[in-house]
Nucleic acid binder design. Structure first.
Lengths: 176, 176
DNA sequence: TGTCTGTATGTTATACCATTACAAGTCAAG
DNA sequence: CTTGACTTGTAATGGTATAACATACAGACA
């Protein structure tokens, strides 16, 4: 069993909790669960999770880290898919639009969403040592921002909240 | 007098208030004030606000909008400075490090800080119509994020909070 | 004053990130 | 079996950022 970083929620030994990335967990379960939910979502919405798209999601699911589009592309082309940037960018765009992947602005990179289907607009916690990315609930932060924006008469449409710092493991002892 | 976007604070007809970008104001005052404070800051810290660096700050101060590095570079080179990317990037890096310029992740672009010297870690409000960028107090939002991060054992070092939306003027009637 | 040293700038080349435009294939509805 | 919408392949290009190295300049100090 591949153990990765995961959390304390007793009901889920693998996934579906806010901080999957930062605690040891059954990563295989984690992956198949998300993939299954992605299939279900696509069917429900009448969009097609085609082989390329599904493969990109799988690739991103291998690690709780953000990957650049070209890194994804390399993997794709070694799997026999096209090797031009649009192949990767189109799949990523589809996945982002459908809430299956998040884009990390700070890194110009992409990470699989751990809670597809659940309406959410998370904040991202990016470990500057091991590069793990976790999703954190951002309701409180958003609320604070909304207040400030309202005071200035600004109408918020989309928000990006990203924190750079150290994950629990790397605080203890920086990863190799 | 160049009037731009500015705000309601009665004590300052030009600058030094959180939402300078979104209200009509005496922009010349705004510029010279920040530039003066930048000089003072550099002296105080023993760093050099050299001609290139100062010029980059001036260029960014011309508008309350984010500018790309290459746009800055063009202006620089037409002023007789070097015309290779590192010239612009180095100056921008210096200004960012010294809190005189902020980088807007979402736009891969840079904007002059309106409150240099004041310790602050603002959120940015980016108008998707007119591209104006305002700094908003982010204390509340940060507090919310800190809570979420703490719950996951994540140690926050730097935070990016950026909102895309509509500034007051563009809500009324989209700019030309 | 002259030399040394650290910092800043100039310049070349290249890496990395992303999109436009168009051609060709796939699939399901009619 | 053809149409039309969508998806993928491919070439070319545009936009953002940095590495590496050479040169110039400013201040410390003999």
């Amino acid at each position: 069993m591949v153990t990765h970083l995961h959390q304390h929620d007793p009901s889920c030994p693998g996934c579906a909790t806010p901080d999957v990335a930062f605690a040891t967990h059954d990563h295989a379960h984690c992956t198949t669960d998300v993939l299954g939910r992605a299939d279900a979502l696509a069917t429900k919405r009448g969009v097609r999770l085609t082989p390329v798209r599904r493969r990109v999601l799988e690739i991103l699911l291998e690690r709780h880290q953000a990957m650049g589009a070209y890194e994804v592309l390399e993997r794709l082309s070694s799997d026999g898919y096209g090797n031009q940037p649009p192949v990767a960018y189109r799949a990523l765009e589809f996945l982002v639009e459908n809430g299956l992947v998040h884009r990390i602005q700070r890194l110009n990179a992409y990470v699989a969403c751990m809670h597809p289907g659940e309406a959410h607009a998370p904040a991202f916690l990016i470990c500057s040592t091991c590069n793990a990315v976790a999703e954190a609930p951002a309701d409180a932060a958003r609320k604070g921002l909304d207040g400030a924006a309202k005071a200035l008469g600004f109408k918020v449409e989309r928000v990006t909240i990203e924190a750079l710092g150290l994950c629990p493991a790397c605080q203890a002892g920086p990863a190799a």
